[in-house]
Design a protein around this nucleic acid. Structure first.
Length: 564
DNA sequence: GCCGTTTTCGGCCCGACTGTTTTCAGTCG
């Protein structure tokens, strides 16, 4: 998929145009980039069909630039822009406080081209001497650079969620808090988050704000107003708090949940109807006609309620208008986890401990899939130990009630296009899962062939693209061929719920569903406290428009045993 | 640069907070 690359090209162009103070074009480029990012179809395929201009936001001008980029891997337009403005705009704009205007000013006056330059002039106190700048701004910029260096600006949702819930609980206990909700990308279950947005309804904002900015984890107060305040926590996560009245809670929640493109589209619908939508409500002239609940807001715009995970401007508004929104899988619909590890390989808990923890979460089955073979993973099972493990599972199953432990394995898909578990062993197992754990760089054609050729021997394909968030991109892979093959062989494709995997991702999950492929949401847990990551995988599935029927581990045990 | 049941030209979401500016621009979401 070239979509991400094309999108980032367009974003970069937009940033540069913004520096040049070209009007409107940056908006057009960003819009196009955002739409391309959201496409489930490969932009290259669309280009080959000559249908680039059918992508929303892409017209003649942008289509030309995309064509050139896909053909040559380069963009002469971008090159020209960069020649005029030899600045690392993306890097600089990542620094809080730094927008296009400031970037331009600092380049013109101080020749700042990148973060290194920025740090140097800020330390020397040169920025504060410029017209329109001051000492505070200079200090903020230095702080901002540190933030970028420390945190890279985004956090993995799964690792932050416990802290976020704790803050929510603390605030909930205040008697001045009438209603509270975590909004923003956390509510939309994005895989990584930039900050946390909390909305509160209260008629004593002063008291709530005081309490909020004095929470134990707060390192620094970034902003503090009567309705809006913002803090940085010790772990560098930024938390924004917005306080409104009960009457505006619904519209404020909608606004604060976003996404931005989704909200902008809603506001445009409002305008067309002669209304105005803001975080305070929907207004007809000066009169407020909605705002207490989100449902009310959506309904007044002629839409059904839209689930937060769908609000990415990926067609959900259009589907809503046509009353064709999907019924999403619910957070309580999962019946079991089909990919976890135990002490037998690289896990931290015994089979019994894992089973008891899963039962506590309400699961009725759990499949132990320890690593097999001798490829890179510590303590992998061999033939003898797997047979021994099977006997152990029989024993624990006899002992426990209310949960059934299934016998599985996580095999390696070898570069040769085979799995490394002997055929006679496979017959002893309930579920065969397999994934690629080595040789990631073989290239699209060979990786695709490698994976497709094991489909007739497995039930579940684990972490299909191998990506690790904030660490490595997935391997080159023709997913549409993998989907076709999975469908032919009744193989379920995994949404791996581990916080830094979430693989398949939301866009590809949607493509899988569109292609009639069955999915399975697993945690890949290596200890009992990781079983709760299921929520993240379900979030991805919901972001990918998946229903309950698309996910096999919403099925009862007997269906699973019959291989779905 | 894109787009169209008010437009093929003239629009393009709305508001809060901060710092430095004495009335507002820049940034953020």
């Amino acid at each position: 998929m070239k979509n991400k690359e094309v999108a980032s090209l367009l974003y970069e162009i937009a940033d540069l145009l913004e520096i040049k103070e070209v009007e409107w074009k940056p908006r057009a480029y960003r819009k196009a980039a955002q739409n391309i990012e959201a496409l489930s179809e490969d932009i290259k395929e669309i280009w080959k069909k000559g249908e680039l201009d059918k992508v929303p936001g892409v017209g003649e001008g942008i289509a030309k630039k995309i064509s050139e980029f896909l053909k040559t891997g380069k963009s002469s337009y971008l090159k020209k822009l960069k020649k005029n403005i030899p600045i690392d705009v993306e890097d600089l704009m990542n620094v809080p406080e730094m927008g296009p205007k400031t970037v331009k000013l600092l380049y013109k006056k101080l020749k700042v081209k990148n973060i290194k330059d920025l740090k140097r002039v800020a330390k020397k106190g040169k920025i504060s001497k410029l017209y329109g700048m001051g000492e505070k701004t200079e200090k903020e910029i230095l702080e901002g650079i540190k933030t970028v260096e420390v945190s890279k600006k985004r956090f993995l949702l799964g690792f932050m969620l416990p802290n976020i819930r704790e803050i929510e609980e603390k605030l909930k206990k205040l008697k001045e808090v009438q209603l509270i909700s975590v909004a923003g990308s956390v509510r939309r279950k994005k895989e990584t988050i930039h900050d946390v947005d909390i909305l509160i309804a209260s008629n004593n904002p002063v008291k709530v704000t005081e309490y909020f900015i004095n929470l134990g984890d707060v390192k620094k107060v970034l902003a503090k107003g009567p309705t809006k305040s913002s803090v940085k926590l010790k772990d560098n996560l930024q938390v924004d708090l917005r306080i409104v009245s009960k009457e505006s809670y619904g519209s404020a929640l909608q606004y604060l949940t976003g996404s931005k493109p989704h909200s902008i589209k809603l506001r445009k619908i409002a305008i067309k109807k002669g209304l105005k939508l803001s975080e305070y409500g929907i207004f007809k002239k000066k009169k407020k006609i909605a705002g207490r609940t989100e449902k009310e807001v959506y309904n007044k715009l002629g839409l059904p309620y839209i689930e937060p995970e769908l609000r990415e401007d990926r067609g959900e508004i259009e589907a809503g208008l046509k009353k064709k929104l999907p019924k999403l899988i619910g957070y309580g619909d999962i019946k079991g986890d089909l990919h976890v590890h135990s002490k037998w390989s690289d896990g931290n808990n015994t089979i019994e401990e894992m089973a008891l923890a899963a039962k506590k979460l309400g699961h009725s089955y759990l499949c132990i899939c320890d690593h097999f073979g001798n490829l890179r993973i510590a303590n992998s099972l061999n033939e003898r130990r797997l047979l021994k493990q099977i006997k152990e599972i029989d024993k624990v199953n006899k002992k426990l009630s209310g949960i059934r432990i299934l016998k599985g394995v996580e095999a390696n898909i070898l570069p040769s296009g085979k799995i490394d578990v002997p055929g006679k062993l496979l017959k002893e197992l309930d579920i065969i899962t397999a994934g690629v754990h080595s040789g990631f760089k073989s290239g699209e054609a060979s990786m695709t062939k490698r994976i497709v050729s094991v489909m007739d021997k497995i039930n579940i394909l684990n972490h299909p693209t191998g990506r690790l968030l904030q660490k490595r991109k997935g391997y080159e892979l023709d997913l549409s061929k993998v989907f076709d093959s999975a469908k032919d062989h009744d193989v379920a494709i995994e949404i791996n719920s581990f916080p830094n995997r979430l693989d398949l991702d939301d866009v590809n999950s949607r493509a899988a569903v569109d292609n009639g492929v069955k999915l399975v949401i697993n945690t890949d847990s290596h200890s009992i406290n990781q079983l709760v990551y299921m929520e993240l995988g379900i979030g991805v599935a919901r972001r990918g428009w998946c229903g309950k029927k698309n996910v096999i581990n919403t099925l009862p045990l007997n269906k699973i045993l019959k291989k779905f």
